[in-house]
Amino acid sequence: MAGKGRRTTEETPLDLVPIMNLVTILIPFLLMSAQFVTLAVIDSTLPAIGPPQEVQEEPDEPPLMLSVALTDQGFTILGDNGVVTGESEEEGAEGEEGEGEPEPTIPCAERPCTSAESYDFEELTRMLSLIKDEYPDDQNVILVPEGRIQYEVIVRTMDSTREDKSQKGEDDSSRELFPFVVIAGGAQ
């Protein structure tokens, strides 16, 4: 009887101390190499200095050569046939009034823009989406930022030109607009 009692007391304490030691060492190590923010990259190429490309055959349709100029007044969308003013938009009327300096296609909320928040990225996406409807095969966009434009604004512009989150494209992801961005030297 007494022997049986002794056996049960021997089994109950499970020696967890070595495992604790191991875990206490593992936790600082993993904490050190933990990644709480995920990184991503945006691709962009330098067309002018890259390796020579083979001469392409003349395409049937003239390329769009879509460019977005970034100034502290707003975005100006340019195509191969001039500036997109957005005739049917309210901004169209405003654009014609501009004397001397041409009005941007999508002006800022407050001018000159001081922060990234005053740029109308949603409107840019909406207009590029309309352009994409006209030119479904075009994938390139040229960004022409002014020297004073903050890097953050450029990145957010690239986001707006890459995809349209409000519309669903193929395979249920957001609609792709112009994913290949080229950053031009810009206005001095």
């Binding site: 923010v37 995920t38 990184l39 991503a40 990259v41 945006i42 691709d43 962009s44 190429t45 330098l46 002018a48 200095i49 890259g50 390796p51 970034l70 930022p145 002014e146 020297g147 004073r148 434009i149 903050q150 890097y151 953050e152 450029i154 990145v155 690239m158 950053i183 030297g185 810009g186």
Partner: peptide, 30 residues
């Protein structure tokens, strides 16, 4: 840095381009 003006980035990109680096990958937070 997100507050850098484009003029600095342009010069950096131009220099990198001259040094045969032409495929830029801008690192951003997701």
């Amino acid at each position: 840095d997100q507050n850098l003006p484009f003029s600095v980035i342009r010069e950096v990109m131009y220099t990198a381009g001259q040094a045969q680096f032409s495929e830029f990958k801008f690192v951003v937070y997701k």
